[in-house]
């Protein structure tokens, strides 16, 4: 069934040789069938997200029912409940750790990527592979000394330290992605700028950065997403003051009462910023991921 997909664009080639009406009709039916199958598969895959958002708008009594309630009394009450339980500070912590670490990462990664592509150092491969190899090491393996150190200096439950650790997590990805984007800048433009006597600063800020701005956005967005969603370090290293959103979500599970719609509301609030940003910047995101992965 899937195999016909690759045949189809071919039919759109200019001047198909002989167009027999019967064959054309079969192709069209096949195309419609395939489109239907595709949409069913996509919607089935997307269903958990739809169901979560839908449940968030239900009153608690209609959230966990058998059979499921498909026509509930819609309410914003559960979102109110999430904020009544003090969600806002956690969201602010998440935002500041994600934004702060992303800006720091970009400030370090852009120059480094510049040195690895536009103005190459002698051995490009070693630093590049060193950086990506740090990404291969499980965070769990270095957590013990990090925890001990933070405990010793009073850095537990501190948003600044969490931000710094997120820089370590995202720096390698950002360098790799920026390097691929920078490698696409035509050399002639940079050389022309250098011949015109532009200094390094002009060369970077006036000539190269404007060209790779979409790339910077993509790298920044991906770093932001990873930091916003990070659970392991946030769970271990923060307790109350610097607690971020991911480890807080579990506290909406209530062993005694019904909790499904308040949990869904909290989860919806937690995923909305990143999902919307990801949708809006989809093109850059896809390009960034593909770039980071393939080149």
């Amino acid at each position: 069934m899937t195999t016909t997909t690759l045949g189809l664009p071919v039919t759109k080639a200019p001047a198909p040789p002989v167009r027999k009406p019967a064959r054309w009709a079969t192709r069209r039916i096949r195309g419609i069938a395939l489109t239907t199958v595709t949409w069913i598969a996509v919607l089935a895959f997307f269903f958990p997200v739809v169901w979560m958002v839908f449940t968030a708008f239900k009153p608690e009594s209609q959230a966990a029912t058998l059979p499921p309630t498909f026509a509930p009394d819609l309410t914003l009450d559960r979102f109110q409940a999430v904020f009544d339980r003090g969600m806002l500070p956690y969201l602010i912590n998440s935002a500041s750790a994600s934004l702060g670490s992303t800006l720091l990462v970009l400030a370090l990664a852009i120059p480094a990527a510049y040195a690895l592509s536009v103005r190459p150092v002698r051995n490009v491969r070693d630093p590049l592979f060193f950086l990506i190899s740090t990404k291969f090491m499980p965070v769990a393996a270095s957590i013990i000394p990090v925890y001990m150190l933070l405990q010793a200096v009073g850095g537990l439950d501190n948003i600044t330290w969490l931000t710094i650790l997120y820089v370590g997590i995202n720096l390698p990805i950002a360098v790799w992605m920026m390097r691929s984007f920078l490698a696409e800048v035509p050399r002639e433009i940079i050389e022309a700028a250098q011949i015109d006597g532009a200094g390094l600063r002009t060369e970077i800020f006036r000539v190269v950065l404007p060209i790779v701005l979409p790339g910077v956005a993509a790298a920044g967005l991906i770093c932001f997403i990873f930091a916003w969603n990070e659970f392991f370090l946030a769970n271990l290293l923060t307790t109350q003051v610097a607690r971020t959103t991911p480890p807080v979500l579990g506290s909406f599970v209530d062993g005694r009462g019904q909790f499904l719609s308040v949990l869904s509301a909290a989860s919806t609030i937690a995923i909305v910023p990143v999902v919307i940003a990801g949708w809006v910047a989809q093109k850059q995101l896809v390009r960034g991921l593909a770039m980071g992965a393939i080149k």
Binding site: V42, F45, N229, L249, V253, L263, I271, V274, V275
Partner: peptide
């Protein structure tokens, strides 16, 4: 767009929704 969404969803939220809702 719909297909890339699960990758954007916070893993903690995904785990909780799958466990309790699905």
């Amino acid at each position: 767009t719909l297909m890339i969404t699960p990758f954007l969803v916070m893993p903690a939220a995904a785990a909780l929704i799958w466990k309790w809702s699905i």
